[in-house]
Simulated scan of single mutants.
Amino acid sequence: MQLLNYMHLYVEVARTKNFRKAADSLGMSSSTLSRNIAALEKEIGVRLLHRSTRRVELTEAGEAYFNRCQGIVEEANVAHEALRGEAAHPSGTLRISMPVDFAINYLAPVLAEFARAYPLIDFELDAGARRVDLLAEPFDLAIRMGPAPAAPSTLVARQIALLERHLYASPAYLDQAPPLAHPEDLAHHTLCVAGGIKQDGWVLFNGADSMAVPIASRFRLNSMGLSRALAAQGVGIAVLDNMIARAELASGLLQRVLPQWSLAPIPVHAITDTRLLSARTRLFVDFLKARLGGQDSVVRR
Rank of each mutant, 00 (worst) to 15 (best):
M1T: 11
N5C: 01
Y6V: 07
Y6K: 04
Y6W: 15
M7L: 11
M7V: 00
M7K: 07
H8I: 07
H8R: 15
R15A: 14
N18W: 04
N18H: 12
K21Y: 05
D24H: 14
S31I: 11
S34M: 07
N36E: 01
R47A: 09
L48H: 01
L48P: 07
L49W: 01
R51N: 05
G62S: 06
F66H: 15
F66S: 06
C69N: 02
C69D: 00
G71I: 11
E74Q: 12
E74A: 09
A76F: 09
N77V: 07
N77G: 04
A82R: 10
R84I: 14
G85D: 03
A88Q: 15
G92S: 09
G92R: 11
L94I: 05
I96V: 13
M98V: 12
M98S: 10
P99C: 14
V100E: 15
D101Y: 02
I104D: 13
I104H: 07
N105G: 11
N105W: 06
L107P: 05
F123Q: 08
E124Y: 06
A127C: 14
A129Y: 08
V132A: 06
L135M: 04
A136I: 04
E137D: 07
F139H: 13
D140G: 08
D140C: 05
A142M: 05
M145K: 13
P147F: 03
A148F: 08
P152M: 04
P152E: 03
S153V: 11
T154C: 10
L155R: 12
L155Q: 08
V156W: 00
L163E: 13
L167P: 04
P171D: 00
Y173I: 00
Y173Q: 00
L174W: 03
A177P: 08
P179I: 02
P179K: 05
P183F: 10
D185P: 06
L186Y: 01
L191P: 06
G195D: 14
G195V: 10
I197K: 09
Q199P: 08
D200F: 10
G201S: 09
W202I: 13
F205D: 02
F205W: 13
N206D: 04
G207N: 11
A208Y: 15
D209W: 12
D209F: 11
V213M: 03
P214W: 07
P214M: 09
I215N: 10
A216G: 08
A216I: 06
L221M: 04
N222E: 14
N222G: 12
S223A: 13
M224P: 05
G225S: 12
R228S: 05
A229M: 14
A232Q: 04
A238I: 01
A238N: 00
N242A: 15
N242R: 15
N242M: 12
I244T: 12
S251E: 15
L253Y: 09
Q255S: 06
P259Y: 02
D273Y: 08
R275D: 13
R275V: 15
L276N: 09
L277I: 07
S278C: 13
A279M: 02
T281G: 01
A290R: 14
R291C: 10
L292F: 02
D296P: 01
D296T: 08
S297V: 15
V298N: 01
